[in-house]
């Protein structure tokens, strides 16, 4: 338990150095745009995540002070919604659809292949920083099942054994 505690702390601390203060200034724009009510928290977090790729402690703290929303509240919101992440992402985000249609048509096999061959599980980033794997609940493209998105590109009607071949196109 204590080990895990230490790990958590380490994880939290390791993110501290990632964003230099001068870059955090960019958040002022978001704060100016959204400060006022908690109603704007989710859009503000979205923009901040677009800006930094993830929502580390400093970003959340700064938003907390700027928008006058308790930091634990922000952290609670960030960890509740699967769209947000507090760890940096890989260069390419694989969004594997695990919706029913895709599941029935082989997404499960694709997931197993990625876990086995790339070595990352859902929510993880590969050690070389190349991929982050996310499972999504339906991309709304069931006609093309199974589907995965890599970055902005949608790949549909994937024959599961070809998964790695598609990934190889993204370095």
């Amino acid at each position: 338990m204590q080990e895990r505690d230490a790990l958590l702390k380490k994880k939290v601390e390791s993110t501290v150095e990632v964003i230099p203060p001068e870059q955090l200034k960019a958040l002022d724009e978001i704060i100016d745009k959204y400060a006022g009510t908690t109603q704007n928290l989710i859009p503000a977090l979205k923009e901040a995540q677009e800006m930094f790729g993830y929502l580390p402690m400093e970003v959340q703290r700064k938003l907390s002070v700027g928008m006058n929303i308790p930091a634990p509240h922000i952290y609670g919101v960030v960890t509740f919604y699967s769209f947000f992440t507090i760890t940096p992402r890989g260069r390419h985000t694989i969004r594997l659809c695990l919706g029913t249609a895709c599941y029935v048509k082989g997404a499960k096999e694709m997931l197993e292949i990625i876990i086995r061959d790339v070595g990352i599980n859902v929510g993880e980033t590969s050690e070389d920083g190349r991929y982050t794997l996310e499972a999504v609940r339906c991309l709304g493209a069931c006609g093309l099942a199974p589907v995965m998105m890599i970055g902005e590109d949608t790949h549909g009607n994937i024959h599961p054994p070809k998964t790695i071949g598609i990934l190889d196109g993204y370095q």
């Binding site: 402690m57 930091a71 509740f80």
Partner: peptide
């Protein structure tokens, strides 16, 4: 605040 979701829900500061 509550943090995380579902089975992983716990209570913590940020």
């Amino acid at each position: 605040s509550f943090i995380n979701r579902g089975m992983n829900t716990e209570v913590s500061t940020d």
